[in-house]
């Protein structure tokens, strides 16, 4: 079984890194996790973002967080991306696969995947 000693090792490894991260996150990925979002499949979408952001080494730049109902339940799972100085991008009817594409093209490459935005899914 995973031991608390392993957790202590994680702590040692991460010490000092924590303060460095503070304030440097300039992109926020927000996943709707109310009843509507959860029922539509938001849990795997959130997990895909969390894993891909880590894998691509974007954790210093990007935070992934959860929110309640955004009010457009018919478009769930909904993901909003906030970036300082830029207009908010709203992705709709998301899946884990689409999330990986958004991480690659938008978070890493700097170009929104227009195909999945609300403007192109009305």
């Amino acid at each position: 079984m995973k031991s608390l000693q392993e957790l202590a090792a994680i702590r040692e490894k991460m010490k000092g890194k924590v303060n460095l991260r503070e304030g440097s996150n300039d992109i926020r990925v927000v996943v709707g996790m109310a009843t509507c979002g959860i029922a539509a499949g938001a849990r795997p979408v959130l997990n895909a973002f969390v894993e891909a952001v880590e894998k691509e080494g974007l954790t210093d730049k990007v935070t992934v967080s959860q929110t309640g109902c955004i009010g457009i339940c018919q478009y769930e799972p909904v993901v909003e991306i906030f970036e300082a100085g830029k207009e908010k991008v709203t992705y709709v009817k998301m899946t884990a696969e689409k999330a990986l594409e958004v991480v690659e093209k938008h978070l890493k490459g700097g170009n929104a995947v227009l195909e999945y935005t609300i403007a192109n899914n009305k």
């Binding site: 608390l4 392993e6 994680i10 991460m14």
Partner: peptide
């Protein structure tokens, strides 16, 4: 977990992964 981790936030990727692996095992 918090007792061991001290000031390390629980939503750190490594910590979440540890929690998931711990439950899976």
């Amino acid at each position: 977990m918090r007792e061991v981790l001290g000031e390390i936030p629980l939503n750190s990727f490594e910590v979440i992964k540890w929690a998931g692996d711990c439950l899976k095992e």
